Simulated assay, not measured.
Amino acid sequence: MTLPTLWDISPPVHAHAPVFPGDTPYTQEWVATLGPGCPVNVSALRLSPHVGAHADAPLHYDPEGAAIGAVSLAPFLGRCRVIHAINCGPLIEWRHIEHAVAGLPERVLVRTYERMPQHAWDGALSAYAPETVTRLADLGVRLIGIDTASIDPADSKTLDSHQVIRQRDMRVLENLVLDDVPEGDYELIALPLKLTQADASPVRAVLRALR
């Protein structure tokens, strides 16, 4: 079987895309439509920047943190490793990923689902153990990603893994679709929008086979 050279790892964004309870779902309205007096369709969007695949800004978890439009793009572009920790339970512990940490690149994406629930909220999502994030940072990892809605448990009030990200100046991608991506190394392309005041940004995340 020939593997693809490009994997789209972004879930679809639409009115039924799941969001954290209380967050702003995606809605769209047409403010102009093609017709005799109008040459184009134009829509207006309303959504949380955490809908779909997205990059958190330091501002999301640090009151003094930078907005997403002010962070460097470098962590979101380059060699990465996809590691499988499928059905690992509530936390991704070091034992779940240690089989694949030799020679890690600066970006690590962890798959926890057999099939990511793209149309329903999962309150029992898997998250990173903060100790795992710390050990990845110690190995030079600059960005971590996950196929769930958060690197912390959905009911966490302390956001311990986000606090490690803050302390180590790392970046994060959430809500990735890694269902069909084999373990291994790829080129990651997941650039956030230059939103000058936002706590996060949607991304169109893709993986490209290494040449």
Rank of each mutant, 00 (worst) to 15 (best):
P4I: 05
T5A: 12
W7I: 08
D8G: 06
I9N: 08
H14T: 06
H16A: 14
A17F: 00
A17G: 03
P18C: 11
V19M: 13
P21T: 01
T24R: 15
Y26M: 14
T27P: 03
T27K: 08
T27N: 10
A32L: 15
P36K: 11
C38R: 14
V42F: 11
A44R: 15
R46D: 05
L47W: 10
H50Q: 15
A53F: 04
A55G: 02
G65K: 02
A66F: 03
L73F: 09
F76V: 10
L77D: 09
R81S: 10
V82F: 06
N87C: 05
C88T: 01
P90E: 07
E98R: 11
A102D: 15
L104R: 07
L104H: 05
P105H: 09
E106L: 01
V108Y: 03
M116T: 13
Q118S: 05
A124D: 14
P130E: 14
T132A: 13
A137E: 04
A137V: 08
A137C: 11
D138E: 14
V141E: 04
R142V: 00
I146F: 06
D147A: 03
T148P: 10
A149D: 02
T158K: 10
T158I: 08
D160G: 09
S161W: 00
S161E: 00
V164D: 05
I165G: 03
Q167W: 08
R168D: 02
R168G: 07
R168P: 05
V172R: 02
E174W: 00
L176K: 02
V177N: 05
L178N: 04
E183G: 12
G184M: 04
I189W: 05
P192Y: 09
K194C: 11
A200K: 08
A209S: 05
A209H: 02
